[in-house]
Design a protein around this nucleic acid. Structure first.
Length: 876
RNA sequence: GCGAGAGUGGCGGAAUGGCAGACGCGCAAGACUUAGGAUCUUGUGGGUAACCGUGGGGGUUCAAGUCCCCCCUCUCGCACCA
């Protein structure tokens, strides 16, 4: 018999077999419950990496497990195939993006096949193909009809390297750089004033926020990030009359969450971009200095300007407003920290109770007036060192006219009401969430189906003319904007309304649009009348388990929730939320090696000399660097292909599930992989060594019970209980596999203890059912090996279609209980008693235990604690 | 600063308030071998011991890694949002 199993031959055999049998093709079925298991689909970059191995291994175990538990499981796969790398490849290598993408898809598909994943490939989607992206266009037109897609001119994020606009969510904060950086290429993002297409996600802000409360099976931190990103705050908008009213400007509207502090508003601040600034300064002596300030501030990118530690700066406009509550004249300033996009772009400044206003007032010597007194420690109005911002404790309004004496919450309510009844403004809600700038000035994406007509303005492409295909005749130069502008066949069209000359919109859609509804397309991938067939969506939606990376906490996962609600309102689906349960898996990391002469080095370029790792080139000592996310530049990559060649897909799957709980980072370890390979080989040998035993068994030879049978049954049923529990409770794959390892270790012991020659027929049958259970429990994790061994022991149907084993609680318990004995909570001894012993019997036996007698030194315990089947504690 | 999470052997990691360290890696010894980096067996938190051990300090409890209070460190996310 071979020492190790031929994983290459076994895996290839079963992959071919499954495919031929169409084993994983799934149809709607009303006789069993449905389950929709989905992993985030990959971008076809060229090859799969260990992160893919991990996420798809997780999803596949879930899908296979649920299938064995009796669900009919939708488990599809596809390609997030639009995106910049394809266009960059075209510029660098002269390959058309479509060719490059399709080649990558073909290669990666073959790599995924090698992992033995149970996908229904009949449902494959590819977002870069017209049969998919035409529905992006269809959805866009519907959104235009409903005013959910619109154009506006505004300051937008611009990535100079990608040469395109980015949504706010796609600009990441970066330590060390002043500006935000592009989520894709990490270039510093700048601000540009442009007219752009937007999706009105803000219309759904409240619903997106409320939905978070119902997503109880999402990780708390993802929900926290979404809630924060949406950023709801309740407050009041109030008009502050301009002291000297102008024809076109009689009042300035502000937004505040602290109306209770309005009597302390001693000045106002406007955002530098606010058009009110020009109106206020026209003809004043201050005009020049204000314009200079505004120009200087707006030259800075937003991230720099709004860095929290940045000095508060401003300039006086020369104009005054009236505080509507005190009727005082207060100066109107322009301040660098006021954001034009948030609220009304203007604030009332209350230096005593807002730290920013406080710093600003100190710098420019503006009066600070205390209007909230701290009841616990009286504040001296002239000795404030910082703003008093506390709201939670019972602050009291002072210096606030008739409102003095109210608590902060009461003051908020009363002043809010007063504002409304007096017609000074209204109570309102503000969100931090901004509309989604979703146009990209690039080629490899969905063309936005709109036209610019000389006479009619912006005109939608009629639905009957969809899809608007991406033209082939475009040059990829890498210079000067979108290649679509350069395509003669694409740009010039006839206006469907007036028949005149029109220009096609040359922007394409953000690829996040593609991935915001692909999970719906999987329900009816062949549907030709609409993005998704509503009946199919009703059957399959929502996704019961979604698996993917945490990096999408506020990008993809927010956009997908938004678009699901839009499609719901279009009548295509009935669900409010697309993903019921979410698992965000951790990164795959690995040790790094650093040589002072050769920088980061590959592990294979090092050798070990007497316990010290040295550089293969220069022989100098290697410094073991941080364990980091696998990356080419750090040279700490492990290749899935090598892994499959050397150890097989089953080993890759088992290791990536065993080495860490799914949501935590997984540190790659070559020796750990070997450990998992050993484990699978032990199973292979176990089954083959017991094969002669299995062939002669007879289950029908009576109800005879032997010590071996009891041991086999107990081990089996305990393991079924443990593995099932671990999978049902939060997918604890690592402990599930650990208990399978324990099981195998026990079976090896029993195999040695009870030689094959001496086994009775019933015992042989016991071995058979034990090994069957082992294979069934392992099948979702190591599908190829278990399929092969399932056949070896005489089955002709696929193990992946067998029902999951059920444990019998009676067979889990053992004949004996081992009871730890404690004295004052410290372990002193252990005794064995027959299972089912009474409390009195156990305590009686414990009192006779030699070690315990010694510890008690003849004294009588004050108290004896007995925990059923668990322990006895003698309190002295 | 705000929010989320984490701190347990040499390492990855286990523990419904009830035997801390399951399982794996590594290491050590032995067996089988011409040989093994294959396989099998045994051992492996620290300490000679009494005992001590889950980031630190308090507390609740017969019993605390687990619950409560205070503090420290690290990771991630957001960051002048009025």
């Amino acid at each position: 018999m071979a020492q190790t199993y031929d994983h290459q031959a076994v895996e290839a055999k079963w992959q071919a077999h499954w495919e031929q049998a169409g084993l994983f093709q799934i149809k709607e079925d009303s006789t069993t419950p449905k389950y929709y298991c989905l992993e985030m689909f990959p971008y076809p970059s060229g090859r799969i990496h260990m992160g893919h191995v991990r996420v798809y291994a997780i999803g596949d175990v879930v899908a296979r497990y649920k299938t064995m538990r009796g669900f009919h499981v939708l488990h599809p796969m596809g390609w997030d195939a639009f995106g910049l790398p394809a266009e960059n490849a075209a510029i660098e290598k002269g390959v058309h993006p479509n060719v490059w993408t399709q080649e990558n898809v073909a290669y990666m598909k073959q790599q995924l096949r090698r992992m033995g994943l149970s996908y229904d490939w009949e449902r494959e989607v590819n977002t870069s193909q017209p049969d998919y992206y035409r529905w992006n266009q269809w959805i866009f037109l519907k959104m235009v009809e409903r005013d959910l897609a619109y154009r506006k001119r505004s300051a937008v994020n611009w990535c100079p390297s990608c040469e395109t606009v980015l949504a706010n969510e796609q600009v990441l904060a970066q330590e060390g750089t002043d500006g935000g950086i592009c989520w894709r290429c990490e270039s510093v993002v700048i601000q540009k004033e442009l007219e752009q297409w937007f999706f009105r996600i803000t219309q759904y802000a409240q619903e997106l926020l409320d939905g978070c409360d119902r997503l109880t099976s999402w990780p708390a931190r993802v929900l926290a990030m979404q809630r924060h990103w949406i950023g709801r705050s309740e407050g009041v908008e109030i008009d502050f009359p301009v002291a000297v009213p102008q024809a076109d400007l009689s009042a300035i509207r502000i937004f505040t969450t602290r109306p209770d502090t309005i009597h302390g508003a001693t000045f106002m601040s406007l955002a530098p971009e606010s058009p009110l600034v020009e109106q206020l300064i026209a003809g004043r002596v201050e005009a020049n200095s204000v314009r200079k300030f505004v120009e200087r501030v707006s030259r800075l990118d937003k991230a720099t300007r709004t860095a929290v530690d940045r000095e508060k700066e401003g300039v006086f406009t020369g104009a005054y407003a009236l505080n509507p509550f005190t009727q005082e004249q207060i100066p109107i300033w322009v301040a660098n920290f006021v954001l034009y996009e948030y609220g009304t772009g203007a604030i009332m400044a209350v230096p005593a109770h807002d730290q920013r206003d406080f710093e600003f007032a100190q710098q420019y010597h503006i009066p600070i007036r205390l209007v909230i007194q701290n009841p616990d420690a009286t504040l001296e109005p002239h000795a404030l060192e910082a703003a008093y911002e506390q709201q939670a404790h019972a602050g009291t309004l002072v210096n606030s006219g008739t409102f003095s004496g109210l608590s902060v919450p009461d003051g908020k309510r009363a002043i809010g009401e007063h504002v409304e009844t007096q017609g000074l403004g209204k109570r309102t809600v503000n969100f931090r969430l901004r509309d989604w700038g979703m146009a990209r000035q690039r080629y490899w994406g969905t063309p936005i189906p709109m036209l610019h007509c000389e006479h009619c303005g912006i005109v939608p492409v009629p639905e009957s003319q969809l899809p608007v295909l991406l033209p082939e005749d475009v040059p990829f130069t890498g210079k000067g904007g979108s290649p679509l502008k350069e395509s003669p066949s694409f740009a010039k069209v006839t206006c469907p309304t007036c028949g005149g000359t029109a220009r096609r919109e040359s922007d394409t859609m953000d690829t996040f649009v593609d991935s915001s509804w692909y999970f719906l397309r999987y329900c009816s991938p062949q549907e030709t009348q609409q993005p998704v067939n509503p009946h199919a969506a009703k059957h399959w939606m929502a996704v019961d388990q979604y698996v993917g990376g945490i990096e999408h906490a506020v990008l993809h996962l927010l956009y997908a929730r938004f678009l699901t609600k839009v499609l719901r309102d279009l009548g295509l689906t009935t669900v409010d939320e697309p993903f019921v349960q979410l698992l965000t898996q951790g990164m795959v990391t690995k040790e790094t090696y650093w040589c002072e002469d050769h920088r980061w080095v590959l592990p294979s370029d090092t050798s070990k000399e007497g316990g010290q790792r040295v550089c293969g080139q220069c022989g100098k000592a290697i410094v073991t660097g941080r364990t980091e996310k696998m990356s080419k530049s750090k040279k700490n990559i492990a290749s899935p292909e090598d892994l499959c060649d050397r150890y097989g897909a089953d080993t890759a799957r088992v290791f990536s599930l065993f080495a860490a709980p799914p949501e935590k980072d997984l540190e790659w370890s070559d020796t750990g992989v070997e450990g998992c390979y050993r484990f699978l080989n032990r199973i292979w040998r176990l089954v083959h060594e017991q094969l002669p035993v299995l062939q002669e068994g007879s289950a029908s030879s009576g109800s005879e019970q032997t010590p071996l049978l009891k041991d086999l049954q107990r081990a089996t049923h305990q393991t079924i209980q443990k593995v099932t529990g671990d999978l049902d409770r939060d997918f604890q794959f690592n402990t599930a596999i650990a208990s399978l390892m324990e099981f195998v270790n026990q079976l090896y012991k029993l195999m040695k203890e009870y030689p094959a020659k001496e086994l009775s027929l019933v015992e042989r049958a016991g071995w058979k059912s034990t090994l069957e259970s082992l294979l069934l429990l392992l099948a979702p994790f190591a599908p190829h090996l278990t399929e092969e061994l399932w056949q070896t022991i005489g089955h002709s149907t696929s193990i992946s279609r067998q029902p999951w084993p059920v444990f019998n609680p009676e067979l889990v318990v053992s004949d004996e209980w081992t009871i730890p004995l404690q004295v004052n909570g410290k372990l002193r001894s252990k005794i064995s008693v027959p299972a089912g012993s009474t409390k009195d019997h156990i305590i009686g036996s414990a009192e006779k235990d030699a070690k315990l007698v010694e510890c008690m030194q003849g004294k009588t315990p004050r108290k004896v604690i007995y925990v059923e089947q668990k322990l006895v504690n003698f309190v002295m």
